[in-house]
Design a protein around this nucleic acid. Structure first.
Length: 577
RNA sequence: CGGGGUGUAGCGCAGUUUGGUAGCGCGUUUGGUUCGGGACCAAAAGGUCGCUGGUUCAAAUCCAGUCACCCCGACCA
């Protein structure tokens, strides 16, 4: 490729809309152009990167016996009605109508399409297990796109679906896929990717992992243990507390606490630690606005996703009205109308001998409240947020750390949710009908490219790993208006290209500053600088984008030096596998 | 969906308070001088000022409506 012909401009100034580095650099470098909120056109450099990522993904999916297919983008709503998701999924699912009035949907994920294919193709146990995958455009009408390619509405995704005749077989395959994912991210040059336990959300199923790039700009919050292997998304991280210091009991007493509606005020007034108080948080169910009140230890916060999962209902922040009978600021377990109100006790309260809690009476709290003695046996749930410095649910040490991450991939053990609702069955060895067990596995291609950029850039531009760089080498011709540098540059370009090195040459007669700064934005890992100064000694300059290599090589040896460097860079990636 | 902000040339912005010939920098085109980290001089092209309506002799500017985009939150497979 020639810079003089490359479509798209590179910009000196940072576009006003960009708030994160990868977005700004990829717009400045001419990788992409926004068309709409969360909808982008990829220009040649951006497209070349995603093609290389797709190639890596294909190779790894094929290695674990995946078979590539291509599902439609537009699907009949009937399939989604079978699984129940036509109504259960919100506005993210784009619904449309064809000219005959038939409901259609834009595929945001393809479990339904996968089952539609597989239920006719795999009626015998002998066909199992198998995995089908595709790399295709998805459209999800996100409530809020942001961050360039990090969170978009239209994007390319690799989605894979596996089918099994036993849970053990699914788990074995899941492990293979887990390893394939680790290889994919390493081969793409994305170093700080870790797998964390996740919440399966509306996908259904039990076990799932998310592959997260650790970065401060990540939208997800992760809980990591510094003492063991425990890693989880905050929404899937159990909250563990040690209440042994608060086991002592006290007599129950009603005490006046005038106008003290917050934990701070009450705990301060009564000289009790926050952890020995019982906090109430009010929500309402989306379905009927009925109240949900969560009681948890005063020093903790509710995690709303955990709460949703625990009670199996969608909820929103509660609005306490005078008619509700709820006394805001003084809510306690005793005396609440549990017929009208769903009461949830977080397990952080378990084992506390004497709690301070609201008395459901204005300006009054109880002290010495003991759950079992004063209220009765309750089923505790886990709905609190894990905290930094908290107790690891696996090793028990207080070494939890909170970190941010971008989700670049996920794997789910789906179970039989879709095969049962969509009536997919096969005949087993005994001639009995069985429902296959499914797994599904996704990777966001564009998000991965932006993630690598986010992880690997400097103030001048992206520093692409050679495995996904738009071009492996860039020839910078200084003084392309002069005969000799121009000729040598062209000869090297022809030689490198012929030798299989993906090369872009900047053959424009522009100043050195422009050549270098735009080369930095293109981010090719290998750079050959051809200039009159070096040619006077018969040399060209060989550098790497990350500045680890910078040396003069004779013109005649430039090709072999580039080939050697390319091999070395690829080998370095191989060595991480 | 709530809160905030912005729409003026390909990009970045000024001009709007106080109505009166649409500007600046970068980029682009042409000519010339430069030449190893975004050079200089000269000339030029490029805009129905988001859109619709209103007020006015006159609207980028004032009023009403509307659309789009960005940020924070909600949400998120």
């Amino acid at each position: 490729m020639r810079m003089s012909e490359l479509i798209g401009e590179r910009y000196k100034e940072k576009p006003a809309d960009c708030t994160i580095e990868s977005h700004a650099l990829m717009v400045r470098g001419g990788y992409m152009k926004q068309v709409n909120t969360g909808v982008y056109t990829l220009l040649p450099p951006g497209r070349r990167i995603t093609q290389k990522i797709e190639r890596i993904i294909r190779e790894e999916m094929d290695r674990i016996d995946g078979q590539e297919v291509l599902f439609p983008v537009v699907l009949p709503a009937d399939l989604w009605k079978e699984s129940g998701r036509f109504t259960s999924v919100g506005k993210e699912l784009v619904r449309l109508t064809d000219r005959w009035g038939a409901d259609m949907v834009l595929g945001m994920t393809h479990e339904e399409a996968a089952v539609h294919l597989a239920r006719d193709a795999a009626k015998s146990y002998a066909k199992y297990p198998f995995m089908i995958y595709q790399i295709q455009t998805k459209f999800r009408d996100e409530p809020r796109a942001r961050g360039g390619l990090i969170r978009v509405r239209e994007f390319t995704m690799k989605d894979a679906y596996s089918f099994h005749t036993s849970q053990a077989d699914l788990e074995a395959y899941y492990a293979r896929c887990y390893e394939a994912y680790e290889r994919i991210f390493k081969r793409a040059g994305c170093k700080n990717v870790i797998a964390v336990l996740s919440d399966s959300g509306m996908m259904g199923g039990k076990i799932s992992h998310e592959f997260m790039l650790l970065t401060a700009i990540g939208e997800d919050t992760l809980v990591l243990c510094d003492s063991c292997d425990f890693k989880a998304n905050l929404e899937a991280a159990p909250s563990v507390v040690d209440n042994s210091a608060f086991a002592e009991t006290e007599p129950l007493m009603l005490v006046p606490t005038p106008e003290m509606a917050t934990i701070e005020e009450v705990a301060g007034f009564l000289h009790k630690p926050h952890a020995a108080t019982c906090k109430a948080v009010v929500y309402q169910k989306n379905s009927d606005d009925s109240y949900v009140i969560v009681f948890l230890r005063g020093d903790l916060e509710v995690h709303e996703t955990k709460l949703r999962n625990a009670i199996g209902a969608e909820i929103h922040a509660g609005c306490v009205t005078p008619e509700s009978g709820i006394v805001a600021g003084f809510i306690g377990p005793m005396g609440l109308d549990t017929k009208k109100i769903t009461v949830v006790f977080d397990r952080s309260l378990e084992g506390i001998g004497a709690l301070v809690c609201g008395a459901n009476k204005a300006d009054h709290h109880y002290t010495g409240f003991n759950m079992e003695r004063d209220y009765g046996k309750v089923g505790y749930l886990d709905v609190a947020r894990a905290v930094a410095g908290g107790i690891c649910p696996v090793c028990g040490k207080k070494t939890l750390r909170i970190s941010n991450g971008i989700e670049v991939g996920n794997i789910f053990q789906l179970g039989t949710k879709y095969t049962k609702t969509m009536n997919m069955q096969y005949l087993d060895e005994n001639g009995e009908l069985q429902y296959p067990i499914m797994g599904c596995y996704g990777i966001g291609v564009g998000r991965l490219s932006a993630s690598v950029c986010e992880e690997s850039h400097d103030e001048y531009g992206p520093v692409w790993p050679i495995s996904i760089a738009p071009w492996e080498a860039q020839i910078c011709v200084l003084r392309a208006d002069q005969e000799e540098p121009k000729r040598i540059g062209e000869e090297l370009y022809a030689a490198l290209t012929k030798a299989g090195v993906e090369t872009i040459i900047d053959d424009r007669p522009v100043s050195a500053g422009v050549v270098f700064s735009e080369a930095d934005l293109i981010g090719a890992p290998i750079r050959l600088t051809v200039s009159p100064r070096n040619l006077a000694d018969g040399m060209v300059e060989l550098t790497t984008r990350d500045k680890s290599v910078k040396r003069q090589v004779p013109v005649a040896e430039a090709l072999s030096a580039v080939l050697a460097l390319k091999a070395e860079l690829f080998q370095a990636i191989e060595d991480t596998l």
